[in-house]
């Protein structure tokens, strides 16, 4: 125990009259009080030259060789990296060389630190992380002296002029934020679907009612808008489903937007989830459900995609389908309600 503190018992400095509660830190403590027992952070004299292998030169020598060998591996890996890079690179080889190089370097450093560097714990003073009382008083005095000089007689300048002016100017300064984005207007109420738009697949080929098999599914886009990577088109992808003939009559909810063709019924729903906007595309034929891959919202196709499980709060909007005399499917109109996740004004007029 003796080595831990050198017994510099300074008299406990009392009367630390601070305007705050400091408990537990200023008791009559071994070696450290509110005073300056040691110069800040400088440990008392201790034997810094001792290290764990000091008394065993042979072991120390062996350790030096081991460390040297480890670091030479690092050097070798460096050469290997250069060769690897020069010959075209290969991710796994690069990873192996980098990991071995750093690993050996670190292993050498650890051995060095643990066996060949002073290994004794030293004890330092924490010192004080706060200021003396007089300094605090001086700061308060300086601050109030300056503030008084500013505010006496001319306080109105700050209160009545500077603050309002600053407010106005501050608002003016954030004005450019408006140029970051356009006014959203009715953007969320419309998609790229338009009356008469033919349904096309991902390569832009129009789709006939007879193309989709019973229980079949196809992702469709409005003709001319098959590339969904624009804000206008991103909300328009839809899922075309052939639910067959028998199930057509079992539907509990039915907006009458489907197309009947050859005894089969084709329905088309927005592919954008009403929860968080992911593409709702998992199709469970056995239960006639669409499932969202992001948060597992489940929609019952036979109830016009009413959500039956998961966080989605609303049905997927349905596209009013029509079939042309030449057999191609088309949209009678855009979706009648906003597509995708909710927002503050969603209930407003479209």
């Amino acid at each position: 125990m003796e080595t831990l503190h050198d017994g510099t018992e300074t008299p406990h400095e009392e009367a630390f009259e601070l305007p705050r509660v400091i408990t537990g830190t200023h008791g009559p403590e071994e070696g450290a009080g509110a005073g300056t027992p040691w110069p800040d952070d400088v440990p008392p004299e201790q034997d810094d030259s001792w290290y764990p292998l000091k008394d065993d030169p042979r072991k120390a020598r062996r350790m030096e060789y081991l460390i040297a060998a480890l670091w030479m591996v690092t050097g070798g890996c460096g050469v290997g990296l250069m060769i690897c890079y020069w010959t075209g690179g290969q991710a796994q080889v690069e990873g192996a060389l980098l990991a071995s190089a750093f690993g050996c370097l670190g292993a050498g450093l650890v051995l060095w630190a643990r066996y060949l560097l002073p290994g004794q714990d030293v004890v330092g003073s924490r010192g004080e992380h706060y200021s003396e009382l007089e300094e605090r008083a001086a700061v308060v005095a300086s601050l109030s002296r300056g503030t008084d000089a500013m505010m006496s007689r001319r306080g109105f300048l700050v209160k009545k002029v500077l603050v309002p002016v600053g407010g106005i100017f501050g608002i003016a300064a954030v004005w450019p934020l408006a140029s970051l984005g356009p006014r959203y207007g009715r953007a969320l109420y419309h998609t790229a679907w338009y009356p008469g738009a033919r349904l096309v697949d991902q390569f832009g080929r129009p789709i006939k009612a007879s193309d989709v098999e019973v229980d079949g599914v196809l992702t469709v886009f409005p003709e001319g808008h098959a590339d969904p990577n624009t804000p206008q088109n991103a909300m328009s992808p839809a899922v075309l489903l052939n639910i067959g003939g028998a199930l057509m009559h079992e539907r509990k909810i039915n907006q009458g937007f489907e197309v009947k063709s050859g005894g089969n019924g084709l329905v088309c729903f927005s592919k954008i989830c009403t929860h968080a906007g992911c593409a709702v595309t998992l199709f469970n034929v056995l239960s006639m459900q669409l499932v969202c891959p992001c948060h597992q919202s489940t929609f019952d196709i036979l109830e016009d995609c009413r959500p039956v499980f998961g966080p989605a709060p609303r049905p997927l909007p349905q596209l009013h389908l029509g079939v042309r005399p030449d057999g191609y499917l088309f949209a009678v109109s855009d979706f009648v309600e906003p597509v995708g996740p909710g927002f503050w004004d969603r209930g407003g007029p479209a």
Partner: peptide
């Protein structure tokens, strides 16, 4: 509460810390 026990920054803690950095990189 008033003392602190451990390694000095130079050299022991610095070397240990450097070793940690290289192991993290590894």
């Amino acid at each position: 509460e008033h003392n602190i026990v451990g390694s000095r920054l130079w050299p022991q803690y610095a070397v240990k810390s450097a070793a940690l950095l290289t192991f993290i990189a590894a």
